[in-house]
Design a protein around this nucleic acid. Structure first.
Length: 106
DNA sequence: AAAATGACGGTGT
DNA sequence: TACACCGCCATTT
């Protein structure tokens, strides 16, 4: 029924789905592109409520400082492994936003 | 309609 | 770097 949960959620999922492999997007950045720079919380909420279905790689979404947060697909550990496996550069326990963070969405 | 919830972000200590 | 507090928002009950 392809029911749009809401304009915001639909937008967030769309952007999340567009995240290229080997790169990550922060909740704040995602929220901003979605239309509300302060809705980072709402964005994370949607990720958790929705499965990490193959169409929504929420594992490519990290916190603003590059630290990983929850992951309904198993936990942060799994998320970290996935990102590394995709080519994301990790700086200790955080993602190297200076390299893996998306700057030009295009 | 109102209250409660949460995978955030920023700032201060 | 780690922890605590506040502010913001959308979703769900």
């Amino acid at each position: 029924m392809v029911k749009r949960i809401s304009k915001f959620a639909d937008r967030v999922y769309e952007l999340t789905r567009r995240i290229p492999r080997g790169k990550v997007m922060t909740y704040g950045q995602l929220a901003k592109l979605a239309g509300n720079p302060k809705a980072a919380r709402a964005v994370g909420l949607l990720m958790k409520q929705n499965p990490d279905a193959p169409n929504t790689p929420c594992h490519r979404v990290v916190a603003a400082d590059g630290s990983l947060t929850g992951y309904s697909g198993g936990g942060v550990s799994v998320k970290e492994s996935m990102l590394k496996d995709e080519g994301v550069i990790f700086n200790g326990e955080k993602v190297d936003l200076g390299i893996s963070r998306i700057s030009g969405v295009t």
